[in-house]
Simulated assay, not measured.
Amino acid sequence: MKLNEIRTFVAVAEAQSVQEAANRLHLTQSAVSRLIQRLEAEVGATLFDRQSKPLALTRDGETALAHARRVLEAVDGLGEAFAGSGQPAGILRLGATHVLSRLLSGDALDDVRSSFPGLTVRLSSDWSNALLDQLDGGALDGALVLTAEDGRPRAELQGRRLSQEEISVVGAPDLVARTRGSLAAMNAVGWVLQPEGCRYRTTLTETLHRAGLRLNVAVESFDQELLLNLAARGVGFGTGPLRLVEGTPLAARLRPVAVDGFRLTVGVWLVRARHSGRLDRVFDGLERSLLRRLAPQPLGLVHSAAE
Rank of each mutant, 00 (worst) to 15 (best):
I6D: 02
V10N: 00
V12Q: 00
S17Y: 01
E20C: 00
A21F: 01
R24K: 12
L27P: 01
V32R: 01
S33M: 09
R34E: 09
R38E: 15
A45G: 09
T46L: 10
D49S: 11
L55Q: 04
A64N: 00
L65M: 13
A68T: 04
R69Q: 15
L72W: 05
A74N: 07
F82A: 07
A83H: 07
G84R: 12
G86S: 15
V99G: 02
D107K: 15
L109R: 05
R113T: 15
L123Y: 05
L131I: 06
L132H: 03
G138S: 01
A139I: 00
A139Q: 05
A139D: 08
T147Q: 06
E149G: 11
D150Y: 15
P153Y: 11
R154I: 07
A155G: 04
E156F: 09
R160F: 09
L175G: 06
G181A: 14
S182L: 11
A184E: 15
N187H: 09
L193T: 14
P195Q: 08
G197P: 07
T207Y: 08
G212V: 08
L213Y: 01
E220P: 04
S221T: 08
S221P: 03
F222P: 07
Q224K: 05
L226W: 00
L226G: 02
L228W: 14
L228V: 08
L230N: 07
G238K: 09
P241W: 06
L244F: 02
L244S: 10
R253I: 01
R253E: 14
V257E: 06
G261M: 04
G267S: 14
G267F: 12
W269Q: 15
V271Y: 13
V271W: 11
S276I: 03
G277N: 12
R278S: 06
R278F: 00
D284F: 12
S289L: 04
A295I: 04
V302D: 04
S304M: 00
